[in-house]
Each structure stands twice: as C-alpha cells, then as structure tokens.
Design a protein around this nucleic acid. Sequence first.
DNA 1: CTGAAAGCGCTAACAT
DNA 2: ATGTTAGCGCTTTCAG
Lengths: 355, 355
Amino acid sequence: MTSTPFPADKPNRPERRGRRGAGGITLRDVAKLAGVAPITASRALNKPDAVSPEVLRKVREAVERTGYVPNMLAGGLASSKSRLVAAVVPTIAGPVFQETVQSLTEALAEHGYQLMLGQSGYQNSREDALLETIIGRRPDGVVLTGIMRSADGRRRLLASGIPVVETWDLTPTPIDMLVGFSHEQIGAAVAEFLQGKGRRRVGSIHGNDERAVRRHRAFSESARRLGICAQDQDMAPHAVVAAPTTLGSGRTALRELLERHPDTDAVFCSSDVLALGVLTEAQAIGIKVPQQLAVIGFGDFTYARDLHPALTTVRIDGTGIGRKAAQFIIERAGGRPVADPIHDIGFTIIERDSA
Amino acid sequence: MTSTPFPADKPNRPERRGRRGAGGITLRDVAKLAGVAPITASRALNKPDAVSPEVLRKVREAVERTGYVPNMLAGGLASSKSRLVAAVVPTIAGPVFQETVQSLTEALAEHGYQLMLGQSGYQNSREDALLETIIGRRPDGVVLTGIMRSADGRRRLLASGIPVVETWDLTPTPIDMLVGFSHEQIGAAVAEFLQGKGRRRVGSIHGNDERAVRRHRAFSESARRLGICAQDQDMAPHAVVAAPTTLGSGRTALRELLERHPDTDAVFCSSDVLALGVLTEAQAIGIKVPQQLAVIGFGDFTYARDLHPALTTVRIDGTGIGRKAAQFIIERAGGRPVADPIHDIGFTIIERDSA
DNA sequence: CTGAAAGCGCTAACAT
DNA sequence: ATGTTAGCGCTTTCAG
C-alpha cells in the first residue's frame, strides 16, 4: 500500500448539508474512486463473481486505499438481513453454557454472522424485556438456551418471524427449532447406572433450577422403582441447593444429606461443581470415594477428568448443540426449510473413578 | 388490551411496490393508527417529555395494539447511534473474564445498550478479522479484554473513532480508555507476601499467555531480590503450561517442578484452576498444604474459598472492571469527555488457608 | 455485466 | 408541541 492515502481530497458529493451521519467513508467514496457506480462497488464486494475482474480489482484497490468498512446497519436495513444472531443464556457465569456459546460464536463467525449476547438471569422476569431489545435488532436468528416458557414470549417470538432455536431441553412443542436432550432420560439412566454398580441407597443433590429438578424427579422415580433408595418418603433422599450451585453448597448439602440418611452409598449431583463440593467434603470428613460413597456429576466440566478421584459424570455435547443450532439458523437464513427441526443430541455417562 | 386487534385492515400506504422490507409493522403504521405524524410517534417513544400527554397515550395505545417493535437497525442508521457495544474476549470458556462480561452486559442493558460478543482466540490472528466485522456494526463502543497489541488493529480502531476501553491490563499508551491493573505489581506483591509467611524456596507455575508470563517475571525478580528462591538460574524455579490452563496441567506441572526443585516450599499459580490442580496433586502424592507447600492462586474463582484447604489467591474485581468500562462508554456516548480515562482497579491478596 | 431509480424504517434539521 | 423534508448508507428492482 504505497499509493497516495485517500482523503487527499474528498470531492464534490451532494454537499453534505446537515451534519448527519458519522462522516466516515462510504461505498460511494469507494465507487467514485474506482470509477464505477455504487451498486457496482456493492456487487464487487458481495458477489465478486458478478463483476468483471477489472472492476473487481479497481474496487478492491479503492477499498484498500480508503480503509472502507461496510456499514452493516445500512446493509441490514436495505436487505433485511442483519447477519446477527441473538443468544439468550440465563447467565454466562458457570461453565454450563460456555461450550455452546463458544461453538455457536465460532460456527456463526465462519459464515459471517455475529453473536449478540443476552443474559436472562435465572428468573424469567428479564427475559421479556430482553426479547424486546432483541427483536428490535432484527436478528436473523435467536438461540435460546433452555426453552421459552413464557407464553407471551413465545407469542412475540413467533410473531416476529425470526428463526428460533431452543436448546438444552426437549419439548414436544418447540416454538420453531430445537436442539436438546431429555432431562428425564438422564435421571433414569443414572439410576440404572448406579443400580448396575451395586448401589442400594442412592440419593441426589441438586440446584433448584427447573431442569435440574426434572433430572432429579426422573432419577428419584427410577430409583424407587428399582428399589435402590429409601422407600419411606415419596422421593429418594435428596438435598436442594440454590442455583447457581457452588462448591460450597455441595459441601453443605452432602453433610445435610448424610445427617438425614447416613447409609447413603451414592449421590447424583446436578452439576460437576456440586460434585466437586461433595468430593471435597467427603475427603474432609474422611469418607472414601467411591468405596463408601459413589459420586456422579453432570456436565463433564474440564476439570472432571483430573479430579482425585476422577469424576464420573454425565456429558452433554455442548459444542455439538452450538454447532447444530448455528447450522439450523444458517440453513433457514438461506431460505431452505429445515428438514428435521427437532434434534435430540443425547448424552453420555462418562465412567471414571468416583462411581 | 380488549380493543380490536390491529392488522384488521392495513390501509393505503404508498402501495408497497416491490416485496422489499420484512413487511412488519413500522412506525408509520403506529403513527397512522394514533393519528399523528411518524416523527411525533418517534418522539413519543424516545422523548416522552417532548409530546403532549394526549399524544403519548394514543401512541402508546397504538404500540400496544400493533405489537410494534422499533427497528434499531433503521434507528441506528438514522441517528448514528447503534446502542451496541462490542466486547472482545480471548475465549469465553474459562472463568477469568466471566465476571467482567456479565457485569458489562448488565450495566449496559440498564442503559439500553446491548453487547455483541467476539472471541479472538488466544492467537491474535483472528483479532483483525474480528475488528472488521465489529467496526462494520458501528458500535457505540468496544471493550477489549486485554490490550490491543497489533499496531494495525490499534490504527483501525483509532481511525474508526469508536470509543475503546482496554481492560485487564495497564499500559501507559492505551488506544483510548483503560480499566486495568498491573501484572507486575501483583507478581512483586505475591513474592513479598510469601516472604512474609516465612517461605524461602518459592517457585511458580504459569500458563504461557502473555499476562501470566508478566506476573511470573515480576514475581521471579522480586523473589530473587528478596533471596527466597534458588539463585542458580536466572529465574525463580517455574513450570510453564499451555494456555488455557487446566486442573490436569496443574497436576503435571507440580510434579515437574518438584522433580527439579524438591525443596520448593511455595508455589504461585497463574490461575486458580492451576492451583486446584496443585492442591489435587499435592493431596494425591501426600504433600501437606500449607505445612510443606504453600499455594497461592490467581483469580479468586468461586470455588476458591470452599476448597480444602481454602485457597489463598489474588483477587481481581472483574465485576468492577465491567462496570467501569460500561460507565466509560456510556459517558462517552453521552458526549461527555471522560475525565480520567485510565483507571487502575488494583488487586487484593485474599489470605485463606493454603498459604 | 453495469447502472439509475427507489426505497429499507427511522430521525436530525428546520419550520410552524 | 407538532409537522415537513431530506436524508443515514446500503441494496433491490428494473433497464439497458
């Protein structure tokens, strides 16, 4: 880039009357410099195959010279394609949705889309306000981590006509598209797994968020059916902690659980953080894992494999969820109807040392 | 909302000729329904004080009836205010920047701004491509986690005229504004802290990312000056692991470090994850913490206080960083020049049991 | 393959 | 307090 720098002279355009606009370099400037019409410059940038090589070269050079960066607000307005995708997560803290958000960002970026992040908080109160601002941006898609329960929210999203992907859950009645897995199946599978390991007095520790509760319920039912837990209550022994879960709440919860049910020989934790707390507490009070107590977590957070003992846990392919969600949205944006808009991504019980 | 639903009849507008636009409800529709000019409806929504109560009522009712959601693409284009702020993080995985991103999102949302998330990866390669798409959105601000090192990136950002806040570091020459702390000061402070605790053979384990390396260097220098580490090398004993750090790499690194320097009595870890690995490994091989080995981490991740033993660590007020960055940008957006655009947020050594 | 015209939906500027 | 006009910077439509 040795040629003369651009704003050497910025010649006569229709005399910017008011002081509107940011006054930056526009496609017009590029076009003028390249000696073509603005629309041709636009084509050169967006559909390089549709213009002559000569024009392409000149436009590219003009872009170089000027340092032009297309204004996507204007482009989006004109084309009704914002190339923006909104993601709503309860919270970005906590490792649960990280993989999903990360792979979503990457997969979208590869196709020229960008991610707008919204946090709904664990209460649904903010979800509605968030929806308003999201729809206002006219994104080409919305990815919801967790399904949308508010009827009003569903209605507005539907009315907006924006492609929606709900994730991290399975529901027979998604708003639009869905990439998830069954919390009920997981609960049941874990109970069976523990039975297979010879455990006979199982319990659970879980956060009070909706999905964790549903895993627990299914776990509890299966455990009772299989006869591997105390039968004197209507649920398997359990302790509930506030979401978001922490190592500390796991420690406390284990003490609590053991106080009420000292013969517990296995715990299903609704997150690996909780499980780490259980492991920590067990070590502190001298309970051997897995000999005296089997521990199984949920999430397969990065540290799970490296713990001592290595944590047995339920793995969800968060990356796969993000990738599939991106694929759904990109397909839709391309005008193609999505063949099978409900995708069960499944889960895996990763057997390590703790259970 | 019992009145007749809106698109009862959508009367004569200038005969939408082509099939452009998304065909949704626009401000014009609302204005027509309220019996006012579009600009008046616009005012009613954006500056409620500037219109008569009567008009305000009618417009609001029309919005209700129609379910109108303003198109911020159009609004942003017209006003050169996108109400969008871009945040660039190396990665969203890993707990380091979470607090910052979270508080940033919240603080911005309170003022009607939204966050666009970009991941640069730990290599700077993608940072430049990212910059292009970011500037294209004409955000009202950019928050960089970590300072921008690429000269070209700095230039483009500067040229764009977008307010920029660099964070998580201190540099005498920020692009624009800065909210950070000194990695050098931290390294030195930790060395002094360990000296005060009577440690005489300190070492460090750190990831190979730039900031961690700088903390280590300062730590190392101070340690040598204070005479609390092996003096036969030009650096204090240390082990380097690949970023992002994991519990597993912490375990490995401790073994490595002790092999080469069996008399090490304190380790400074460049992250709490690493420290957790060190704790885990120490327990696994029967080393007593803190009696035989003091461990100090960095980050004060949520679980640090609940570990066994509770982890001594360096705390950075990530929430404060996010809040301050948001404040900087919002002030700028309001046209006010920011008084002191370089803000040192400091750090705290949180003394717990591990050191 | 290239271009002129006409907006996308909104708001700044200037009336009134 | 309200309205008129003229764009913001881009792309669609429709002609060459």
